[in-house]
Design a protein around this nucleic acid. Structure first.
Length: 557
RNA sequence: UGGGGCGUCGUCAAGCGGUAAGACACGGGCCUUUGGAGCCCGCAUUCCCAGGUUCGAAUCCUGGCGCCCCAGCCA
């Protein structure tokens, strides 16, 4: 059951009063000028969610009224991402550009009604004439051109007779309005540019305010849900529809998503891509749907997240920890567990017969008994995690240390007898242990307790792989803080480990497969950089680590 | 004293005149062959502030204060 919110309340009311004959038609209207991000996911879940809950439909409509910024690469990516998130627009795929001819006719109607005029002022002049937030604007000298002249000029604008920027079509509303959007807004501008959908057919392109409401009207949208910054555009949205006397949906605004440590501005994300701070729109550190997908996030977790954050009108910044929580909760139930040693340290079981190998049973997922078991090879020489051994263990460290006994997951208890150090560096390079053959499987007849359980791999059986550990792309909660967001880039957002040793079952991991690396976190086989037999793993999100937290507290106090 | 919005726990967020849901985070405990997961407990005597109405106010009224958005031929 999804949480209620003020928009759902409005829809419910409208259904009760039969305002739209019981119809619920929403739309998701991206401009194809960049990739979709987690903020769009909020809007997608809201729009598709409300429609689905009320037996309605949601249109996917490209708001493609500005050919200078848009590209088919983006339309394809957007469709892929919406679909991946789990939503279906059926045959309701539209483009604002599909309606250009109708928009033109509507504009002509406005001119005929004396509600629009062609203005010859330059953009600088228009800005000057617009006034300021405190002072009213002045009327353009062309404001009262005869209808016939306007009609002629507008037709010639369409015909491509005038250069870019030389004229615009404006609505005749109120140059002294406190709402700047109503000071004779531009309806059409001249752009001699190829459009990704209409080609070279048009030399004039409608502005958002004009095109958006009319698109909604043409498609008989009931609830046109958008973000807060369009709130003071609503009077204009209403004005166009009322002047033209056409079907009138209602615009409702909600607060866009802001996430800690995350940049959501499409313009700035594009900048990161163009300047190479990330590998592309789908870099696993990007908040884009494509990036999250590649990182290993699931549509289920993202949808759950969107359900939990709610929908309201107040500006807010959601903690990215919630997204991570949703992802862990989802993957905990379904990700197979596997052993991976990220920073290998050799461990030799001195009393284990040389050349012997046994296949031990390992549970695939304790949270899901139906997921079965697999065999993991054990032998005399193993690798364990460097962090799991300390020559001088601090208080509370219950992993391996000289003289200490630990359990090797799924295998045996081992006790550290001695260590081998590098003569030069003094670094521990080998740990020598003895094992208790009675402890096979992880328990002993005497029932003695060991506090630590370590993951491990057999040296000769393990496969070598690259594992990428990701951290936040920015090291400030609010990446926009300061004068240049790029100064907040986290230099340690990516750590690539190339000598990781993984249990052999991972040799057949397929791109997109997700696992829990025991005691580390959830990892996903990279879809781009992996090759057959040579998988690259991306860390989606780490496991909660209370030991690390303890260490951190001690370090800072 | 241009216009439009918004102010409820550290962060989101319910609440719609009947006496502050939930989630994340955080703290403590239990349990554990992942220091994972799970379980239990705690966590706003108070809702930006000040008045007022009312038997009763986070909810209604008045006045302040604070924050966000708008001066693209972007969306």
């Amino acid at each position: 059951m999804r949480g209620s919110n003020f928009i759902r309340d409005i829809v419910e009311d409208d259904l009760r009063t039969n305002k739209y004959d019981g119809r619920v038609v929403t739309r998701f209207p991206p401009e194809p000028n960049g990739y979709l991000h987690i903020g769009h996911a909020k809007s997608i879940c809201l729009n598709f969610g409300i429609a689905m809950e009320n037996k309605g439909v949601t249109h996917l409509r490209f708001d493609d009224t500005n050919p200078s910024k848009e590209d088919v690469e983006y339309t394809e990516a957007i469709k892929r991402d919406v679909r991946w998130l789990g939503f279906d627009w059926g045959d309701k795929l539209f483009h604002a550009s599909d309606y250009f001819e109708q928009f033109y006719e509507f504009a002509v109607q406005l001119i005929k009604d004396g509600r629009a005029y062609v203005d010859d002022l330059s953009s600088d002049e228009i800005r000057e004439y617009r006034g300021t937030l405190k002072d009213p604007g002045r009327e353009s000298p062309h404001r009262n051109r005869p209808v016939a002249e306007n009609l002629d000029l507008f037709a010639r604008m369409r015909a491509g007779e005038f250069p870019d920027g030389s004229r615009v079509l404006r609505a005749k509303i109120d140059m002294s309005s406190g709402n700047v959007n109503l000071r004779d807004p531009v309806i059409y501008r001249i752009k001699h540019e190829t459009h990704h959908n209409t080609g070279d057919k048009w030399f004039i392109y409608p502005m958002y305010d004009f095109a958006h409401g009319l698109s909604d009207s043409i498609e008989k949208i009931t609830h046109s849900i958008c973000t807060l910054e369009f709130e003071d555009h609503r009077p204009l949205y209403d004005w166009y529809l009322d002047q033209l006397g056409v079907y009138h949906p209602q615009q409702i605004e909600f607060a866009r998503l802001a996430l800690t440590y995350t940049l959501m501005s499409k313009r700035k994300l594009l900048n990161l891509v163009e300047e190479g701070h990330v590998s592309g729109w789908d870099d696993p550190r990007m908040p884009t749907i494509a990036g999250l997908r590649r990182r290993g996030f699931t549509p289920e977790a993202i949808r759950d997240f969107c359900d939990r954050i709610g929908v309201a009108k107040r500006d807010s910044m959601v903690s990215v920890a919630l997204l991570e929580h949703c992802q862990r909760e989802d993957l905990n139930l379904r990700a197979p567990r596997v052993m991976a040693v990220l920073r290998p340290l050799k461990l030799v079981v001195d009393n284990y017969p040389e050349g012997q190998t046994e296949k031990l049973d390992a549970v695939n997922n304790p949270e899901n008994p139906g997921s079965g078991t697999r065999k993991v090879p054990f032998s005399r020489v193993l690798y364990i995690e460097r962090d799991d051994f300390r020559e001088d263990p601090p208080k509370g460290f219950f992993r391996l240390a000289p003289g200490k006994e630990v359990r090797l997951k799924h295998a045996y208890y081992v006790t550290c007898q001695n260590i081998v150090k590098d003569n030069q560096t003094g670094e521990v390079i080998e740990v020598h242990c003895t094992y208790d053959s009675e402890s096979r499987g992880g328990g002993t007849p005497d029932g003695r307790v060991v506090k630590g359980t370590l993951h491990w791999v057999s040296a000769v059986h393990a496969i070598t792989a690259t594992v990428r550990l990701y951290d936040y792309l920015f090291d400030k909660e609010d990446p926009e803080e300061g004068e240049d967001f790029r100064a907040n880039l986290n230099p340690n957002s990516l750590e690539t480990l190339t000598d990781c040793r993984l249990e052999p079952s991972l040799a057949n991991a397929k791109p997109g497969d997700r696992y829990q690396f025991l005691r580390h976190g959830y990892f996903c086989v990279d879809q781009v950089d992996s090759a057959p037999g040579r998988p690259v793993f991306n860390r989606t999100v780490s496991l909660r680590d209370s030991w690390a937290k303890m260490q951190k507290v001690h370090a800072t106090s």
